[in-house]
Amino acid sequence: MSMLEQLTNRDQVFDFLAPVASPVDVRHGPILYMEDVNVSFDGFKAINNLNLTIDDGELRCIIGPNGAGKTTMMDIITGKTRPDTGSVWFGSRHNLLTMNEPDIATLGIGRKFQKPTVFEALTVFENLELAMAADKRILPTLTAIMKPENREQIDEVLEMIGLTALRDKPAGILSHGQKQWLEIGMLLMQKPRLLLVDEPVAGMTEQEMERTAELLTSLAGKQSVVVVEHDMGFVRSIARQVTVLHQGSVLAEGTMDQVSNDPEVIKVYLGEEA
């Protein structure tokens, strides 16, 4: 029993946002490495020879028109969709194609969905509680007890995402923007090594967007963050490295200025005539 307790308590030893002891091996290069990945649905090629590497601690923005394969790419990384060919590695040790969603999540990849998905019947606090890094097997979950340290940790995140006043309200009553924040908060509770964030600012006010940008940039360095976003203003405000996807493969990569001056990219975004 004490073994189990140790497991459930282990994460409390570390301070919030401190690097988490993770089995992921990044000594020899990038944290995420995708090579020659192909996926097709009924003959439609959603991902076409995609190659992508994300360095440890990097903040990367991914842009691209609708149907460029951004969401499918995230599905592949998180284990929801299996590619037809190619390889996807997390660090140099973990082949993601052999793992399922919960394993990948436990390993340290967190994901925020395009459409904010929170557990509407549970309170804001409980949403964060479930996301908290812990032993997520059945019996430990059944016998789990909330420790004061856990509570503090959740309160800290509540503060950060500005939902302290709503902590005991069901998540279903939150506004769209608040749900986005709650989901980001859940990601933080997971303490992932790599965050995949799909359209984080959709439905947010200007002010909320600024705070989101602040938060995401502050995470970079300690954790790797991949942001998929349509809002160019937002991308410009946070981006260091930008990758442009088009028809399932990488069209261009570089700083925001570089890619926005790339003739290929301009053609894709503004149409053939331009």
């Binding site: 969603e101 919960p102 967190g110 998905t117 557990f119 479930l130 996301a131």
Partner: peptide, 15 residues
């Protein structure tokens, strides 16, 4: 959580 958003629960690391 499984009842209301199965996929989300999975991405939190629950089987």
């Amino acid at each position: 959580a499984c009842r209301d958003a199965e996929a989300r629960t999975r991405f939190l690391g629950y089987r």
